[in-house]
Amino acid sequence: MIVFSNVAKHFDNKRVLHDVSFDLKNGDLVFLTGPSGAGKTTLLKLIYCFERPSSGKIIIDNIDISAITQGKIPQVRRKIGIVFQDFRLFTDKTVFDNVAVTLQFNGMHPQKIRGYVNELLEKVGMLKATREFPQHLSGGEQQRIVIARAMVSKPKVILADEPTGNLDDENARTIMHLLKEISLKGTTVLIATHHKDLFQGSGHRVLHLNNSIIESDYAA
C-alpha cells in the first residue's frame, strides 16, 4: 500500500531524510518514532503529496506519487485520512460539518452522511458536541474530531501525526482501539509518535527514524 524506495528529502541544504526504504501492506498498523525534528511529519507529508521527495520513489496504492501531476493529487489524497499534528479543523464549520466534509467531496447524499458522521462521533465520544464549533472545545476534544474526520470516509491509508498528543490515558486507549479496528478492516495505519508507551509490548511494527535514516525496524 505504501512503498518507499531510497527516498531522500532535503530542504535547501538541510538533510531531513536520507535513503529511506520500507513497505507497508494493507491492514498494517505501524508506528513511526524518533526524536523531535527527526522528520516524522516530513515523511507523512511526502505520503500525502504536500512535499515532493528530493530523490527516490514513493508508491501509494500502486500509484507512483514521486512523479504525479498536480491534477491527480486530490485523487491520491482522497485515499488518505490524515490526523494533522496541528489539527487543521475548520473554525467556521460545526463539529458535524468538519467531519462530514470529506464525504461531501464525492457528492454523497446528506442523509447517508449523517449516518456515517454520527456513528463515528459516537465512537470517539463526541456525539454530544455535534453542533458546536471546534474552537470552543478542549485540545483533546478537538483531536478526537480530527481523528473522526480522518476515518469517516473509510480511506485506504490513515496517517496519524501524534494522534494522542492531547489525550488522557482513557481517551488515548479509545483512539488506539479505533485505529486498530480500522486497520483490521484493511486500512493501512501509520502513526507518528514519540510516546513509547503507545506501542511498547503491543507487538506492532515500529520504524525508528533518527539521523535521517530508519535506524531500526522492529516489532515492539
Binding site: 486530490p74 489524497r77 482522497r78 494533522f84 487543521r88 475548520f90 467531496f105
Partner: peptide, 16 residues
C-alpha cells in the same frame, strides 16, 4: 486560505 489549504490536503475536488 488556511481552510482552502486544508480542503486541498483532504483531497477536495477542484469544483468543491
Amino acid at each position: 486560505r488556511d481552510d482552502i489549504e486544508t480542503l486541498k490536503l483532504l483531497g477536495a475536488p477542484r469544483m468543491f
